[in-house]
């Protein structure tokens, strides 16, 4: 027996969820689908290729308050702030599920833990949603993810006929299934068969794009002319890194009013010109060339050296949104082509 959530019960599922959790879900707003906290199940949509913004926003928010401080009479009081909540994020696509596992490594492994992220991770239940029709910018399969991959979800929904086949993957997923128990029907559905169908779906772009050997090839491409060819068109904006579900760079800033204040941890982007500018003006990445190189080397080489995986899940956001087409696919193709033939400049 497999649990199934009938299509007609989706709103109730979200409502029951909200009895115990706060809800973040895809909402259509002024022509774009964004992930947003919502209290209105009616506003939640499921007919999107993927959300413009990614679930990382709710684990690694653009602005996180780290601590408060207060100066009084020659004393300083520092009071750590921790995120309090219990949240469900609904409708996360497989590529974005995969991205959480990639950021986990950065914030969890090594000598130190990034506790703000981990607190949110621990208290959030992720509901994944398998993709029925991958789009022209999707290339998850390039990175071994499929339209049906549940890795990273606590509870996975596979759209099937008039409902969603439910797979419970973790304790948190189990708790949510119990919370919404009355809505889930036990049906005679072969979960493995359903999953298999999604795993086998064609992802046209991804199926033809391979990253095999790209990291190794890039070991020798730091000084390759490709960076000078690709970078002039970059606008140096934050679109690619802010929308990317795997980018995770940040900076810190203090805000004060009188003798009290907060320290905030804010998103930052390696594509911004002041990202590595030091006091005195020295900047090891002074031009777009170094900055564009950093973005792609980080994802396709440095991260691989540190964690053994590529820092991209083929979500396609940079393809869809970079105003000048400086995309992951484009760069992987360039790297694949380099060496096998004379690199055609700029194309």
């Amino acid at each position: 027996m497999t649990k199934v959530l009938p299509q007609g019960k989706l709103k109730d599922f979200l409502k029951d969820t909200m009895d115990k959790y706060s809800l973040v879900a895809p909402v259509r707003e002024d022509g774009v689908v964004v992930l947003k906290p919502t209290a209105d199940p009616e506003a939640v949509v499921t007919d999107y290729l993927n959300t413009v913004t990614s679930p990382k926003d709710f684990f690694f928010p653009q602005t996180e308050r780290m601590f408060r401080f207060q100066k009084t009479e020659g004393k300083i009081r520092v009071e750590e702030t921790t995120w309090q909540g219990k949240r469900v994020i609904f409708g996360v696509r497989p590529c974005d599920l995969g991205s959480l596992e990639l950021i986990d490594r950065v914030f969890q492994e090594g000598e130190y833990e990034e506790t703000y992220y981990l607190a949110r991770r621990e208290n959030t239940t992720v509901v994944g949603l398998a993709c029925s029709s991958p789009g022209p910018t999707c290339f998850c399969t390039t990175f071994g993810i499929t339209p049906g991959s549940p890795e990273g979800a606590d509870l996975m929904l596979y759209p099937d006929g008039e409902g969603f086949v439910v797979e419970v993957l973790t304790e948190k997923g189990e708790a949510l299934a119990q919370q919404t128990e009355t809505l889930l029907e036990d049906q005679d559905v072969d979960l493995a068969e359903v999953k298999g169908r999604f795993e086998g779906l064609k992802v046209p772009l991804g199926d033809h794009l391979s990253v095999d050997g790209v990291a190794a090839k890039l070991d020798g491409m730091f000084e390759h002319p490709v960076w000078a060819e690709l970078s002039p068109r970059c606008l140096g904006c934050g679109i690619c890194t802010y929308l990317c579900p795997t980018c995770h760079c940040f900076g810190m800033t203090d805000e004060v009013r009188g003798d009290q204040g907060v320290r905030l941890r804010c998103w930052d982007s390696c594509q911004f010109s002041d990202f590595t500018r030091m006091a005195g003006g020295h900047n090891p990445r002074p031009t777009k060339k170094e900055r564009v190189r950093q973005r792609f080397m980080h994802k396709l080489n440095y991260y691989v050296h540190r964690f053994g995986r590529y820092l991209c899940t083929g979500c396609g956001r940079c393809l869809e949104k970079c105003p000048v087409g400086l995309t992951m696919v484009h760069v992987i193709e360039k790297v694949n082509d380099s060496g096998t033939r004379e690199v055609a400049v700029n194309e």
Binding site: V106, F250, G251, D268, H298
Partner: peptide, 12 residues
């Protein structure tokens, strides 16, 4: 190098 976190997380 320019630093913000000091603990290998901020990516800078």
């Amino acid at each position: 190098m320019k630093m913000q976190c000091g603990i290998g997380k901020c990516g800078r």
